[in-house]
Nucleic acid binder design. Structure first.
Length: 607
DNA sequence: GTATCATGTCATGTG
DNA sequence: GGCACATGACATGAT
């Protein structure tokens, strides 16, 4: 069973399953570049399931910018991703009936781009993603061929001519191994690093055998081997025990509609450069599509397979992960908010109260807990699970727009629960049943300390209302005849703590801003100092040159005066007067200048 | 077990 | 004096 979990929680098949859940056709290019690639991380160990990939950690290094995971600018950045807008247009999510198929075409880096060029020029039509290639005369794959790393192409079977009898493109690389994905600088292919085939291997092999068709690339030993791996996978013990709600075999193998896709690794392709994402090292482009067009309830389907529009927001992926984990239930919305100590959803904007609570609790669980000792729930594993449940519930209860909006605001990054490969629906139902049992208790538990106190004293106002109301209203409320002294005291405390909480946040934000500003000043001053040091060095060098020239000139003058430069020197006064001075302190008398030649002649005549 | 970080809360100062 | 706000200090939980 553990092995099965590994199959389903790792790698590509999870992507396909999860994305099929909502019928999303996804270009996951942004997630397959370098460290953003969950596929890369799947081989990092037993706990490195893709679901557990903390995308929020990746945000720190996104595009080379060092941004805080909660930075509003970062949120707006993600919000601007056009794929998110595309996801918005989706209709109600529907459970998948089919999975995408994949065709992988490996072109080693050192291999000339013969196969790849053929792939792009043999009338594949929409075989390759527009994101990856363009229709230039040189052929988009030539761009890829310039890359010094391995390239894996995914191609639509429909686009492959039936009479295509070209050998399996991976055959050329078969001698290097039987795997299909290589990573830059690694001798071991990505999918085989663990020494055993992973679900990715199997899926890719399936793609070979089912999507390519025997007319095309079949007959290759590698393809058969991959297919065998897939069969091995399907024959794994415990697979039959899984209740996924769908026939996994048929879901994967039937009516395989391989959509074009392309995986590159290494330097950015031209298409990437055009999108402004190139130049950051290794990139991988990928594409996944649901083969069932009925999944598309929204206008997105109009783009049709082969269209390369759309990118999933990272937050969307997080939510999709939640879908795949089967975590969720309506209870999550309430449960996710229980960890909020104060119950304040300050800064949640115009969101609905339920989603606001979920978001607030999510942010709470992410890091700070504060004085939550009175809270009976820990914010760790349970809180994460509840946040996930909240997300799941959001998907089921909210409209797509609301759900996407919740994704936009939800900064929680929940980890999977134990049953990471379970059926989402089943788990949801389990949570629902649990919620029915102790919903009242949970509702009580999720209240903050102040909320519980306010409820105990029958204060009909929420903490948010108490904190947010104008002071006039608050004073009039306190001055009313309906409140007792303990109620008044509690109201004051709640308002004071709430205000101070906000003040502390602002204070810390300003402090961080000040620190950042000072760091900028320090950096500027350091650069300025280096510049001045360079100028000083240049000035010293120029001064040395001038002194050297002056010394040579002085020696020349002294030599013309028939004075030894080692014994005499020239003194230059500020007023421009130049005099000869002896270097020997004992001979301070001005040396008599030699007689003028005319005088010397006259003197000679007298004698 | 320890360090670090984020957050809440309290005490205190300031306007 | 009361209030809002700012901020240092401390506690607490998460990582």
């Amino acid at each position: 069973m553990q092995r099965m979990k590994k199959y389903f929680t790792e790698g590509l098949i999870q992507f396909a399953i999860l994305l099929s859940l909502i019928g999303v056709r996804v270009d996951v290019e942004t997630y397959l570049n370098g460290y953003l690639s969950p596929l890369v991380e799947t081989d990092l160990g037993p706990s490195s399931a893709y679901i557990q990939t903390p995308f929020h950690n990746l945000r720190d290094t996104l595009d080379g910018y060092s941004l805080h995971p909660k930075c509003p600018d970062l949120d707006s950045y993600f919000a601007s991703r056009r794929l998110l807008d595309e996801v918005r247009t989706l209709g109600s999510p529907r459970f998948p009936t089919q999975l995408s198929a994949w065709l992988v075409h490996l072109v080693p880096a050192t291999e000339p781009d013969t196969t790849g060029a053929q792939t792009s020029s043999n009338g594949s039509g929409t075989a390759l993603s527009d994101n990856v290639i363009d229709s230039g005369g040189d052929g988009p794959l030539n761009d890829v061929e310039q890359d010094d790393s391995c390239t894996v192409y995914l191609r639509s079977p429909s686009a492959a001519p039936e009479n295509d009898t070209r050998p399996c493109p991976s055959e050329a690389s078969k001698e290097d191994g039987e795997t299909m994905l290589w990573r830059r600088g690694q001798d071991v292919p990505m999918a085989m690093e663990g020494g055993s085939p992973t679900c990715r291997d199997t899926l890719l092999s399936l793609d070979y055998s089912h999507a390519l068709g025997t007319e095309g690339f079949h007959g290759n030993g590698l393809c058969r081997d991959m297919d065998q791996r897939w069969q091995d996978f399907l024959s794994l013990p415990g697979l039959d025990d899984l209740d996924l709600g769908v026939d996994i075999t048929s879901a994967i193998s039937q009516d395989v509609s391989l959509q074009d896709a392309m995986v590159t690794e290494g330097g950015a392709s031209r298409a990437e450069t055009q999108r402004g994402v190139g130049g950051t090292g290794a990139r991988r482009l990928f594409r996944m599509e649901s083969s069932d067009s009925s999944h598309w309830a929204g206008p997105l389907d109009a783009s049709g397979p082969g269209s390369s529009s759309g990118f999933l927001d990272e937050a969307v992926f997080e939510q999709i992960n939640l879908l795949g984990l089967g975590l969720g239930g309506v209870a999550g919305l309430e449960e996710a908010g229980r960890d909020s100590d104060s119950g304040l959803s300050l800064g949640s904007g115009s969101r609905s109260p339920s989603s606001s609570e979920a978001s607030s609790s999510g942010g709470r669980c992410e890091g700070a807990v504060g004085y939550s000792s009175e809270s009976e729930l820990s914010c760790s594993a349970k809180g994460r699970g509840l946040a996930a449940a909240a997300a799941m519930a959001t998907v089921d209860t909210l409209s797509p727009m609301e759900w996407v909006e919740s994704v936009r605001h939800d900064h929680t990054y929940p980890a999977p629960l134990q049953n990471g490969m379970g059926n989402p629906i089943q788990v949801k139902e389990e949570l629902l049943s649990e919620e029915d049992d102790d919903s009242d208790e949970e509702e009580e538990e999720e209240l903050s300390r102040d909320e519980r106190r306010a409820r105990a004293l029958s204060i009909p106002l929420s903490v948010q209302e108490i904190v947010g109301m104008p002071v006039e209203d608050f004073l009039s409320l306190l001055g009313g005849q309906d409140l007792t002294a303990p109620q008044v005291t509690l109201l004051r405390d709640i308002r004071r703590r709430g205000k101070n909480k906000l003040a502390a946040r602002n204070c810390r934000r300003r402090k961080l801003e000040a620190i950042g500003q000072l760091e900028g000043e320090v950096e500027w001053l350091e650069r300025r100092r280096e510049q001045l040091q360079r100028e000083q060095a240049q000035g010293a060098k120029a001064q040395a040159g001038l002194l050297q020239r002056l010394q040579r000139l002085s020696d020349r003058i002294l030599s013309q005066l028939r004075l030894c430069p080692s014994r005499y020197t020239l003194d230059c006064t500020p007023d421009g007067t130049v005099s000869v001075r002896s270097r020997d302190p004992t001979h301070r008398r001005e040396p008599r200048p030699p007689p003028h030649p005319r005088c010397q002649k006259k003197k000679d005549k007298k004698h």
